[in-house]
Amino acid sequence: MIKALLKNRDVVLGLILVMMTLAIAARFPGFIELENLRGIFTDTSILIILALAQMIVLLTRCIDLSIASNLALTGMIVAMINASSPELSIAVLVGVSLIVGFCLGAVNGLFVWLLGIPPIVVTLGTLAIYRGIIFLLTDGQWINAHEMSPAFLQAPRNIIIGLPVLAWVAIGLVTAAAVFFGWSKLGRALYAVGGNPVAAVYAGLDVGKTQFIAFCISGMLSGLCGYLWVARYAVAYVDIARGFELEVVAACVIGGISIAGGIGTIPGVVLGALFLGVVKNALPVIGISPFWQLAISGSVIIIAVVINARQEKTVGKLILRSSHKAG
């Protein structure tokens, strides 16, 4: 029983996370105070949502490098709308962020679906284009906290049952994603398309269309994060979240999502994101310069892919061996 549990990747990752937290807490007891843990979770919420978005795309053998640019552009558009007409309700702005994000994701998806261009090329291109558009829209101007309406800034911060709305949004989306991946037709199709595209076609799935939908969902979630990010940090400018797409990919890889598609779990992704969140928040506590963060997350990505590859490889080899025996 315990042995079987230890073979489960998510359980192991969870244990590592808990042990790491406890180890830090042994030296700095304040680290596991409820207030601090709450802060870490809230801090990591946006990363969790984006990691879910990236996971959806990765499952279908694609990759979306434009999510941080999508976030920044959508965030800027929402902030501009809010600055020019503060009377608009937050619900409308959230709707706008979802729609804009959806459209930006759909552009990626259309190129991949209709023209069959490799996703990495398309999203490397839109990564530059979307961020450039922010400059065209704003001429490099910032939108600062005093230009945004109080309701706009307050919405994700309101506390409900001990947690801010931002954290609840992440929890809600994680739950929704668990249902979606486990029980919906489309959710299973995402795994099928990435796991074995040829078999997926024979099973009656449209691979390209499924990938398109994956990009649309990923775009929509990135757009939502655009609003959340701008409201949380109370500023919008060209460079917000620059390079964040790498952290998101890192969270997915640490969480055991295979870049080759078809493999990955929701708890894995959440744990992967939390892992990075704990590391980021622990560095200043244990007195390591924040400049270490990039090097640490890079090392963790590399270690995680090496471990992932070993696990995936054994599965592949076993199948080959048994089929060899059968033959």
Partner: peptide, 15 residues
Amino acid sequence: FGLPSIVVTIGTMSL
């Protein structure tokens, strides 16, 4: 390790 170079080099890009 037979890893996909895109992930490896995203990792070393950070490292």
